[in-house]
């Protein structure tokens, strides 16, 4: 369980002014839940993810994982970034093996596991490629495999499909769901796409524009496993999308007020 307890985050801007990015966020994420954080750009949703990751410390409040205060990054929480952040000097296999090797897994075992993961994300045959030889979608598959390889209990996904074209994006969403259905890790998924949030999540957290506050938490009660083609025709799905889109429109207008 992840608990975010009255977390606020203030940044110093270059003009030495304090900018309130997150204001008094409290949120509890159950084990095995797929939760999306949705909001307009600049609402601090990525910052919230970084706080859970331990990459950024909150100015006020506390985040806890399994009851313990988060003081830094750890292999129990695996990030996947929009920028992929692969190690360009390592091959696909080298990247995926990196985490297990760091955790002390023997080379042969780490390699066998990593090869299975690479196959699972659909990149069999690309083990010896360098990241620069891969397309964006393939890079993100490697990044996902690299993170899954060290068995984090929680996946922290920071707009992971934001830089991909629509087609690739859809395929990766499907594949992510298939992988998630197998072991039901806790996923915290940051996105600005309403469709994506509704399609993937058990719960969507809608945030307001800066300073980021939680506007509403919506439970998505759609059956799993989800098939995109079926969902698109499902009136319940459509209702969620329209409802949340309206909410986002409201929060955007809030932001325009001086």
């Amino acid at each position: 369980m992840i608990e975010i307890d009255h977390v606020s985050q203030t940044f110093r801007t270059s003009g030495r002014q304090a900018h309130l990015a997150l204001s008094d966020i409290s949120l509890t994420i159950e084990d095995g839940a797929f939760v999306s954080i949705l909001g307009p750009s600049g609402c601090g949703k990525s910052t919230l993810l970084y706080i859970v990751g331990g990459f950024v410390s909150p100015t006020e409040g506390q985040a806890r994982v399994k009851g313990r205060a988060i003081t830094g990054p750890g292999p129990d929480r695996g990030p996947v970034f929009q920028e992929f952040a692969l190690f360009p000097w390592k091959t696909v296999l080298g990247n995926v093996m990196y985490g297990p090797r760091q955790q002390g897994v023997k080379a042969a075992e780490a390699e066998a596991q990593s090869r299975r993961l690479i196959e699972m994300v659909g990149l069999k045959g690309f083990e010896n490629f360098y990241p620069k030889e891969l397309s964006g979608g393939m890079k993100q598959r490697v990044a996902l495999a690299r993170t899954l390889a060290y068995h984090p209990a929680v996946l922290l996904m920071d707009e992971p499909f934001g830089a991909l074209d629509a087609h690739t994006r859809t395929r990766l969403q499907n594949d992510l769901l298939n992988i998630w259905e197998r072991d039901r890790k806790t996923v915290l998924f940051v996105t600005h796409s309403v469709d994506e949030a509704v399609f993937l999540s058990d719960k969507v957290v809608v945030m307001t524009r800066a300073p980021g506050r939680i506007k509403e938490i919506i439970d998505i009660e759609l059956p799993r496993p989800r098939r995109r083609a079926e969902l698109l025709l499902d009136p319940r799905y459509q209702k969620y999308v329209v409802e949340i889109e309206r909410m986002i429109d409201d929060t955007s207008e809030d932001g325009l007020r001086p």
């Binding site: 750890g74 920028e83 952040a85």
Partner: peptide, 14 residues
């Protein structure tokens, strides 16, 4: 060097 590359490493326990 990309910050997120270092974060990825930190999450692996480096």
């Amino acid at each position: 060097v990309e910050e997120k590359m270092l974060w990825s490493g930190a999450a692996m326990g480096l």
